[in-house]
């Protein structure tokens, strides 16, 4: 409710002083769209490389493929998450007392941008809310991982 009032207050002057206020909403929209575009691209990467194991809703497969919903891996340090994508895993991933056994193939063939996009998508989907991952962050981890 507070948010609605805030938005209303923000746009009311915009309507009154349309000419003068134009640049500000534009700038906001641009920032928002960059984030959205990255997440949208990430969804495409996810569908192609991740979805069949981690599932369309990120719930994974019991005992086999880990879920991506509010887990310590997904919401935790970005470095660990980026490494996971670059190196894959040999199974035995533990989350809250459950163990997930299937191998995850390394996805190092993805570009820094693709990894940033897909991780930003995952960190902001399935009920997750966490900061974006940038290509620069992936680049740093990739250099150290090699």
């Amino acid at each position: 409710m507070t948010k609605v009032i805030f938005v209303a207050c923000l746009f009311f002057p915009v309507l009154l002083f349309a000419q003068a206020k134009k640049p500000q909403p534009k700038a906001r929209a641009k920032t928002g769209s960059l984030t959205t575009v990255s997440i949208d691209r990430g969804k495409t990467v996810y569908s192609q490389f991740c979805l069949s194991c981690h599932q369309a809703d990120g719930s994974g497969v019991p005992n086999m493929n880990p879920p991506l919903i509010k887990t310590k891996w997904v919401l935790g340090p970005k470095t660990v998450l980026i490494q996971q994508v670059l190196k894959g895993s040999q199974g035995k991933v533990e989350i809250d007392g459950d163990t997930f056994h299937n191998t995850m193939p390394a996805q190092a063939q993805l570009t820094d941008q693709q990894i940033a996009d897909v991780l930003s998508f995952v960190r902001n989907s399935f009920g997750n809310k966490a900061s974006m991952v940038t290509p620069a962050e992936v680049k740093v981890v990739r250099a150290k991982t090699k």
Binding site: Q55, A56, D57, S59, G60, V61, P62, P67
Partner: peptide, 10 residues
């Protein structure tokens, strides 16, 4: 519990 299961978690 329902038709059209898209993921086993459902």
């Amino acid at each position: 519990g329902k038709e059209n299961i898209t993921s086993p978690g459902q």
